[in-house]
């Protein structure tokens, strides 16, 4: 039987691309060798072990649904505006701060059943965020979870966090007010 005189063009193309491919493979292998056992690999492995993306999203969502209402309630009871604090922390300019002010406009709160109930739920949510942070640290530093035995620590941590936030707001506000003061003739619009 006579074999057809047919040549597949692919091996020729592969042969032509061989030096480029070889260089590519070499570079990849070198990069892989460099990555193997490196600090970066340990870092990535550790991030995978704690489910980084899930934890970040859950932590962010937890903060949104619990810490933010807590701040709003606290600010309402303290007759203190939370939008200023958030604007300060986000480093917002005047226009963006105006939007924040519009977002957080609220009347001073009075203590009734609904407020008390929401305060309880918000406190429970904040506890969940603190617990989530505790579990993240326990995973990162390879420690066992202590469960309810660590509850008092969460409560104390939340209290300290509130104090730190209030302290930063009190310290930060005069600085922000100073930066908002118009500087006389330089800030006034030109007459023409």
């Amino acid at each position: 039987m006579v074999q057809p005189d047919h040549k597949d063009p692919q091996p020729v193309a592969e042969q032509e691309a061989t030096p480029a491919r070889r260089a590519e493979r070499k570079a990849l292998a070198a990069a892989r060798n460099r990555f193997e056992g490196s600090l970066a690999q340990s870092f990535v492995r550790q991030l995978k072990a704690i489910d980084f993306s899930d934890q970040v999203m859950l932590f962010g969502a937890g903060l949104l649904v619990s810490a933010l209402p807590l701040l709003i309630l606290l600010s309402a009871f303290a007759s203190n505006r939370v939008d200023d604090d958030i604007s300060l922390r986000l480093g917002l300019d005047r226009r963006a701060s105006g939007i924040m002010t519009h977002l957080f406009t609220s009347a001073p709160a009075t203590l009734n059943v609904a407020t008390a109930t929401s305060l309880v739920f918000v406190t429970a949510g904040t506890l969940a965020v603190a617990s989530s942070l505790q579990q993240i640290y326990e995973k990162v530093f390879h420690q066992d979870h202590r469960g309810l035995r660590g509850l008092h620590r969460l409560l104390i941590w939340i209290a300290v966090l509130c104090l730190v936030v209030v302290f930063q707001s009190v310290v930060g506000r005069p600085v922000r007010n100073l930066s908002d003061v118009p500087c006389g003739p330089c800030s006034s619009p030109s007459p023409s």
């Binding site: 991030l47 934890q55 970040v56 932590f59 962010g60 903060l63 949104l64 993240i136 640290y137 990162v140």
Partner: peptide
């Protein structure tokens, strides 16, 4: 808030 979570976890 998500960025705060990322910062806390990445730092640790």
């Amino acid at each position: 808030f998500v960025a705060i979570g990322a910062v806390i976890i990445l730092g640790a």
